[in-house]
Amino acid sequence: MNRQLQEMIDDIDYTAQQMIQYGVLPGDYYNSSFSDMQTALAAKAPKDRPMDAGEFARSLI
Rank of each mutant, 00 (worst) to 15 (best):
Q6D: 09
L60A: 10
R3E: 11
Q6H: 11
E7V: 11
K44M: 07
I20L: 04
Y14D: 05
E55N: 09
Q4M: 04
E55S: 11
L5W: 05
M19K: 09
M8P: 06
L25E: 14
P46G: 07
L25I: 10
I12K: 08
Y29Q: 06
M1S: 14
Q4Y: 10
D11Y: 01
N2M: 06
Y30L: 00
N2C: 06
D36A: 09
D28F: 04
L60I: 11
A42I: 02
I20K: 15
N31Y: 06
Q21I: 07
L25N: 14
Q18F: 05
F56T: 10
V24H: 04
G27Y: 08
P26D: 02
A53Y: 09
L41V: 08
A53S: 15
A42L: 06
K47R: 15
P26M: 05
G27C: 02
F56G: 08
I61C: 02
Y29G: 06
S32R: 12
A40G: 06
K44T: 11
A57G: 01
V24Y: 01
D10G: 02
T15C: 08
M19P: 04
A42E: 10
F34E: 06
M37V: 12
M51Q: 15
D28E: 12
T39Q: 08
Y22D: 05
I61Y: 04
M37G: 06
A40P: 07
Q38S: 03
Q4L: 08
D10K: 13
Y30S: 07
I20A: 12
D48E: 12
Y22L: 06
R3L: 06
A16F: 05
Y14A: 12
A43E: 10
Y30H: 13
Q38L: 08
A57M: 12
M8T: 13
Q38E: 04
G23E: 00
Q38D: 01
T15L: 13
L60P: 01
D36W: 00
T15W: 05
I61P: 07
D11N: 14
D28T: 12
S59V: 01
G23K: 03
A16G: 14
P26H: 01
A43L: 06
P26C: 03
P50M: 08
I61E: 11
D13H: 13
E7N: 14
F56V: 09
A43S: 13
P50R: 11
M19S: 10
P46S: 07
R58T: 10
Q38F: 03
D10F: 05
T15E: 08
K44G: 00
D11Q: 14
A45G: 02
Q4K: 13
A16M: 00
M1Y: 08
I20S: 10
I9A: 07
R49T: 12
R58E: 09
L5S: 14
P50N: 08
P46C: 01
P50Q: 07
M8L: 13
A16Q: 09
K44N: 02
M37D: 02
